[in-house]
Amino acid sequence: MNTIMIVEDDLKIAELLGTHIKKYGYESVIIQKFENLLDSFQKVQPVVVLLDVNLPNYDGYYWCQQIRTVSTCPIIFISARSDEMDIIRALENGGDDYIIKPFHYEVVMSKIRSQLRRATGEYALKISERIVKKNGLFLFPERMELRLKDKQAFLTKKETDLLEILLTKSPLLVKREVLLEQLWDNYEYVNENTLNVNINRVRKKLQDLGIENAIETVRGAGHRLHVTWTKDENE
């Protein structure tokens, strides 16, 4: 049974979410003790986490980081915070999506199904191991790992999908609409800044590997990946 873990300190909202989720054939587990949330996660082993930002002791950003140390399970933030920086912070700390309260339950279910398709369902990668490479840069989609020479970087699922698209098309421009459609099934619900956040996160990880100015943004059109890096003098 696919289990959705609900981390929400408003018990009424959590119970309403749980009831709605069960109508669609999923199991739900509502967390009511937040001191050892990572232990609860490892015990439940959910397929998706619905995570509030405002929690006792430590906030949702902290717990998202902790979950990311042990799992790539999709994490959808659900919060009353609607400021753009809150959304950016959620995504930069490892979240896959963000829903602003008040919300429609159908939107929540749509996003859950979308994440499951990406992670384990019809859109999940079926091949056991693949390598996408260009100019010495190696992407291992199943491992969500990026390598250049002796350096490596670990990616989130969304970062991996985004980079795979850009690598496969490089040096061609990929339209913004194409990226949105391929990364999110129901992209009309996606905040317009969400793609920009993921672009910047991938750009930073490429920079950490030594690839400067890797992703070119063409205003009003899309994005293009350039894989160029400076070789060491001894190479």
Rank of each mutant, 00 (worst) to 15 (best):
166 L>K: 10
166 L>T: 01
167 L>K: 07
168 T>L: 10
168 T>N: 14
168 T>Y: 13
168 T>R: 14
169 K>Y: 09
170 S>T: 09
171 P>I: 04
172 L>Y: 06
172 L>C: 07
172 L>W: 07
172 L>Q: 11
174 V>D: 01
174 V>L: 00
175 K>L: 03
175 K>N: 03
175 K>C: 04
175 K>W: 05
175 K>Y: 06
176 R>M: 08
176 R>I: 02
176 R>F: 01
176 R>Y: 09
177 E>M: 10
177 E>P: 03
178 V>A: 00
178 V>R: 02
178 V>I: 03
179 L>P: 04
180 L>W: 00
180 L>T: 01
180 L>Y: 09
181 E>C: 03
181 E>R: 06
181 E>I: 04
182 Q>M: 12
182 Q>D: 08
183 L>S: 10
183 L>D: 13
184 W>I: 00
184 W>P: 08
184 W>L: 05
185 D>I: 12
185 D>M: 02
185 D>P: 01
186 N>R: 13
187 Y>R: 11
187 Y>C: 12
189 Y>V: 13
190 V>N: 08
191 N>K: 11
192 E>V: 13
192 E>N: 11
193 N>H: 07
194 T>S: 09
194 T>N: 09
195 L>V: 10
195 L>H: 02
195 L>S: 02
196 N>L: 15
196 N>C: 14
197 V>D: 07
197 V>A: 12
197 V>Y: 00
197 V>N: 10
